[in-house]
Design a protein around this nucleic acid. Structure first.
Lengths: 193, 193
DNA sequence: CTCATAATGTTAGACACTAACATTATGAGT
DNA sequence: ACTCATAATGTTAGTGTCTAACATTATGAG
């Protein structure tokens, strides 16, 4: 019963329409822009109703903003020695968590980031998605002895720099994802001229 | 004619309903929360129509997000010596721009920030408001010779840390606004343990 | 007091999203 | 293969933000 569930899960109806919605949504966002695309259009392209769209994604933004790498980041921060400055701990924690990124679907990620970077609404609510991670990083820094103000500022700065790196990477074809991330993080460590 | 215009501007009808809308909006946001308050309620309290509300504020968020200190920040960055690291230039530029804050209405600012910090929607779109300032800081850093990636990361980090400082200040009554800002900025300079 | 125009009102509608209930499809056990 | 609980989707009706086009009222300059 468990096994059959797992077997079925690989391509259940729910999952099929889920990916179908994502694909058509991204296509439309690239072709017409995010704000110019209505949920009705996406639903029609995926041959479902608007209602079904909202059953899969609680908002139009969340079709694009699906960050599965979040929990790892807070763990990476927790793994840092507590006697380092808060900002350094945050930077190294993020670097550690993002070192082993799955090389596989980098192009798919770049596509999404490009769409996000191209829409003010998406950029804004991508900050909202990051808020949970930011809070957890801050909590971890506080638990390791940092003052609240310092911890919140460090967490916010690292995530903002990381997001900026992603946007630059999406914009500049010559950049590698690890190179962009490392460049941004090193900026925070003062390793530049 | 010019004089009479100025005299009238101090309390024109437009300006009166403008401030009336703001006051009633903030009152309602504090009493019921931002998302629980409808524009219709605000308009009714201010004795105008919804349409009038949107003529004064292009979105519900913009009643609270009214940052008049933006252009000064980019100027402060421009005033820094170009041979310093980008992050340091950004930090010192912001510090310089925010040194002479009008002491007067600090409590009014704290009220607004508290409302913003208490709503996910407002936090998200406050990032949107900062985007223009962030872009200008980044442009300035690039103009002074910083690589694009470093410039964007530094600008994003500084503004994010600044925002975090504002939220902490709104939350912690013991904090002074200058102290909060300075604490966040010094975190980015590595001046802590 | 008159008149241009600034300020607000009215109406109609698009779009994102929610709630309650109805319908269809899918697979598990038989 | 058949039955049936339930997962998945559909339908309908609505709220709330925001826009556009046009109508009305208030304000101050001459």
């Amino acid at each position: 019963m468990l096994v059959s569930n797992i077997m079925r899960m690989a391509t259940s109806r729910h999952e099929r329409t889920h990916t179908r919605l994502i694909e058509h949504a991204l296509d439309l966002f690239e072709a017409q822009g995010f704000e110019q695309t209505t949920v009705a259009q996406i639903a029609a392209a995926a041959e479902v109703t608007e209602m079904t769209f909202f059953r899969h994604f609680s908002s139009k933004e969340l079709v694009v903003l699906n960050d599965p790498y979040d929990p790892a980041i807070a763990d990476g921060v927790a793994a840092q020695p507590a006697d380092l400055p808060a900002l350094v701990r945050a930077v190294r924690g993020v670097r550690r968590a993002l070192n082993g990124l799955p090389e596989a679907d980098v192009e798919r990620v770049r596509r999404r980031v490009r769409i996000i970077a191209g829409s003010a609404a998406l950029r804004a609510s991508s900050a909202g998605v990051n808020a949970a991670t930011e809070a957890r990083i801050g909590d971890q820094l506080i638990a390791d002895g940092a003052p609240a103000l310092v911890a919140r500022a460090a967490a916010a700065a690292v995530l903002a720099a990381l997001t900026a790196a992603l946007f630059e990477w999406a914009r500049d074809e010559r950049l590698t994802l690890p190179a962009a991330i490392d460049g941004a993080l090193r900026t925070l460590e003062g390793d530049d001229g």
